[in-house]
Amino acid sequence: SEEELEEFAKEVLRRGITIIVNGIRITEVEIFVKVLREILEKR
């Protein structure tokens, strides 16, 4: 749901943790923004 997305976004921003994806360091915020864009483009 959109509320869950908002909560996830807030949690990500609070933690600001960097994770490893395919050997490249990407912040969770960047991943969230990318996923959010993909979701919005599909609408």
Rank of each mutant, 00 (worst) to 15 (best):
L40C: 14
V35G: 00
I24Y: 01
E3R: 14
G23I: 12
S1G: 11
K10T: 03
E41L: 09
R25C: 09
V29W: 14
A9Y: 12
I31C: 10
I24T: 10
R25I: 12
L36Q: 01
G16Y: 11
E6P: 05
K42F: 06
L5N: 02
L36H: 02
V33S: 03
V12A: 09
I26L: 10
L13E: 02
V21M: 10
L5W: 11
E38M: 04
R15S: 12
L40N: 03
V12K: 00
V29A: 06
V21I: 14
T27G: 06
I24H: 08
G16L: 15
E2W: 15
F8H: 05
R14L: 10
I31G: 11
A9L: 15
F8T: 01
A9M: 13
E41W: 01
F32A: 08
V33D: 03
R37W: 10
I24S: 07
G23C: 14
I19T: 01
R25H: 13
I17E: 11
R43M: 15
I39R: 04
R43D: 09
V21P: 00
F8I: 08
R25A: 11
T27I: 07
I26H: 03
E41H: 09
I39N: 02
K10C: 13
R37I: 11
K42S: 13
K42G: 12
E4V: 12
R15M: 11
E41M: 08
E38L: 04
R25G: 06
E41N: 13
N22S: 07
E41R: 12
I31Q: 15
K10F: 03
E4W: 15
L40M: 10
K10R: 12
I17G: 12
I17T: 08
I19E: 00
F32Q: 00
R43P: 08
I39F: 13
L36D: 03
E2T: 11
E30A: 08
I31M: 10
E7I: 08
V29Y: 10
E6Q: 11
R14K: 13
A9C: 15
T18H: 13
V21N: 02
L36W: 02
E41F: 04
R43N: 10
G16A: 12
I26C: 12
I31V: 08
I19M: 02
I26G: 01
T27P: 08
R25W: 11
R14F: 03
F8R: 04
R43Q: 11
L5G: 01
E6W: 15
K34L: 02
R43C: 15
I19L: 07
E38Y: 06
E30H: 10
I20S: 05
I19F: 00
E7R: 12
K34A: 09
F32S: 02
R15E: 08
V21Y: 09
R15F: 07
E4K: 13
E28A: 11
L13S: 02
L40T: 04
R15N: 10
R15C: 15
E41Y: 01
F32M: 14
E30P: 08
I31S: 12
V33K: 01
I39C: 14
E28R: 06
E11C: 13
L36F: 01
V35A: 09
G23D: 04
K10Y: 05
I17Q: 06
I19P: 02
R43L: 15
L40A: 07
A9W: 15
N22Q: 08
I17V: 13
E11I: 05
K10V: 04
L5V: 04
T18E: 14
F32E: 02
L36R: 00
I19A: 01
T27R: 08
L5M: 06
I26M: 07
E11Y: 00
I24P: 07
I20Q: 04
T27H: 11
